[in-house]
Design a protein around this nucleic acid. Sequence first.
DNA 1: CGCCATAAATGTATGCTTGCAATTGTTGTG
DNA 2: CACAACAATTGCAAGCATACATTTATGGCG
Lengths: 157, 157
Amino acid sequence: MIPDEDFDARAADAALTASRALMGVVARSVAGVLEIVTLPQFRVLVLLDTSGPLRMGVLGEAIGVLPSTLSRAIDRIVEAGWVRRTTRPASRREVLIELTPAGQNLVTHALEQRRDNIAEILSVLSPDQKSAIVSAFELFAGAAGETSSKELLILGI
Amino acid sequence: MIPDEDFDARAADAALTASRALMGVVARSVAGVLEIVTLPQFRVLVLLDTSGPLRMGVLGEAIGVLPSTLSRAIDRIVEAGWVRRTTRPASRREVLIELTPAGQNLVTHALEQRRDNIAEILSVLSPDQKSAIVSAFELFAGAAGETSSKELLILGI
DNA sequence: CGCCATAAATGTATGCTTGCAATTGTTGTG
DNA sequence: CACAACAATTGCAAGCATACATTTATGGCG
């Protein structure tokens, strides 16, 4: 009979190893993008992709940088053409930041590539194996609970 | 009967969701460290942790920076006390970089925290569920093949 | 309307990374 | 031994992120 601690340890190790594999996939999908924009810049783009247009203040709050930092960061990615500043007529002191089609493309492409990479890995497995993986991954994701997007932004995911 | 494409898509989606959960764990473990050292600096420490002492040239090659960049980066983390420069008597023009105990601690602690986080997530599951997850994760990791540490370094893992 | 709070941007400064070019020290070879 | 090849560092320069303080424009309220 295997002691619980050993069993748990093996489970954690398996998860760690799988996490390395999954992160390799993520890294691949991020690597290309990081030759185009910096990680903090990519964080902004990803956040805008998942949340839609955001005010400067909200955006800065979300990714944890000061307004001055963000303002200049936005300067650069506006200049590069990834996002657009728009002022709402309703409240003209607020500035909305939104992705341009080019910026949208950049993020979408990175996510699609990641998805394709995973699909390719799974392609070598039998239906039964895939099925087992789907259940297990869904189970794990459920147990992990909602992963705050703020945390994920650290890695630009 | 579910078409194969749909099934594959669901599998990839499940893996993506699980990857988000796992990345959240990684992000947490990295977040603390990034308040102490920068990401490029942490990459150096992680590489030294997994490879042992390395020459400047090899180190720079591995993480993909020019020698000049690395030299100054090492200046800073030597100054901070995370690594040590040593010259081999055999070839005095080569400089070996090695972790100090403090640097070793820094990396080890980050990895341990990651492992603990995963263990905590798994702790809410039943033995059967854990068992299923272990199998599935091992299966996935196997299918993914060896994840090059060079790719993982992109994320500072 | 006048005042204060809010939102964003600017001024100013520091530190890190990165790159190219030139330099110093060392090893090996003809 | 002289000279070329190699390893690392240093000089010089640019870009980016970050922080604190200040300024500008706008909105809300008494």
